[in-house]
Simulated assay, not measured.
Amino acid sequence: TTPQQKIDKTRQFGGGRVEIRLVGDYFDATLRAAQAFTQETGALFLPPFDDADVIEGQATCALEILEELPAPDLLVIPVGGGGLASGMVQVADALSPATAVRFVEPEGGPSLRRALEAGALVTLPAVDNFVDGAAVARIGDRNFAVLGRFAPGDALLAPENRICATMLEMLNVEGVVLEPAGALAVDALRDLDVAGRTVVAVVSGGNFDFERLPDVKERALRWEGRKKYYILRLPQRPGALREFLAVLGPDDDISRFEYLKKSARNFGSVLLGIETTVRANFEALEARMAAAGFTWVDITDDAVITSLII
């Protein structure tokens, strides 16, 4: 399930001497496959985060920051397996102990947060792999040995749909291309009081496949409250659709209209997607729908239904 852009970039780095095998739908399955391969062939396994040398290498990110900005008030660090975070924390402790640290994980993969709550390593039963660069079910052993002293509240959780809105804002306003994991730290600034403070948010990746852009836009609109999906019960008679169109406001746009069931004698079920300019327009639209006698169910936040039909 790795985005094609990342696969192509890895192949490019290999200079024609790398064989890529796509194994497993989640990081942890891929990790087990890689470890098994090294045992079978005698190859050298390079861990992505749970390794002293890897942690030390990623710690140089903090060295570079503190060389240019010796004493920031706050470091905001994205977390997947914990290599970058555990390395940076050790450098900050040594060179800038007054600097506060906050970590950010995707809401669908809070392996550090759950471990901090339990006081021990936890393997998540399921992970949302939308934020593919940070979708890890279990924080690394060495990494948690460093990060385990923090409180659960120090590990912030970023909703996947909100991350999408941050990615679009960074692209459209700042001209910066971020992958979902790369946007974690910037997205978390929405939840932090940063006024008057010197804050460094670590932007950790720009390997974004633009084929994913329609999905990112869709999720961003839903988080902003500017897009909703309904199951509309529409009477099976001439003029019913025209009556429904009359209740739409000037800024309401139908983005999807699909009959789910048209076999009933009196009514049919319609999947309806509507985009608008501001969140408040939906309250007015639903009031007009109710006054006109229409029946509907808002399925926008129903993850089970939307994953099946949208």
Rank of each mutant, 00 (worst) to 15 (best):
L69V: 15
A240V: 05
T306V: 14
R138Q: 15
T1K: 07
R233A: 09
G133Q: 04
A151R: 13
F37H: 14
G239H: 08
A183P: 01
G140H: 07
Q58H: 15
A145D: 15
A240D: 06
L69K: 10
M170V: 04
I299P: 12
D154T: 14
S204M: 02
E117T: 12
V297G: 06
D209H: 10
L308N: 09
V216C: 09
Q90E: 12
Q35V: 02
K262V: 04
V216I: 14
A201G: 06
R212T: 01
V200T: 10
E243T: 10
V79Q: 00
D252C: 13
V18T: 12
A246Y: 07
P70W: 04
K217F: 07
R11P: 03
P159S: 12
L308F: 05
A118P: 08
F208I: 13
D193W: 02
E224F: 06
V131F: 04
G57A: 12
G57F: 07
A264M: 11
A145M: 12
V122T: 06
A92S: 12
M88T: 03
R190N: 09
Q90R: 14
E160P: 12
S307K: 11
I139N: 00
A185D: 08
L121G: 08
F49W: 10
G109R: 00
A201V: 05
V89Y: 00
I77N: 05
L189N: 02
S269R: 08
P47S: 15
I254Q: 05
F45K: 06
F267V: 14
T2W: 04
K227E: 12
D253L: 11
A280C: 03
R11L: 15
M289Y: 11
R113N: 13
V122N: 07
D8Q: 11
E224R: 13
R162I: 03
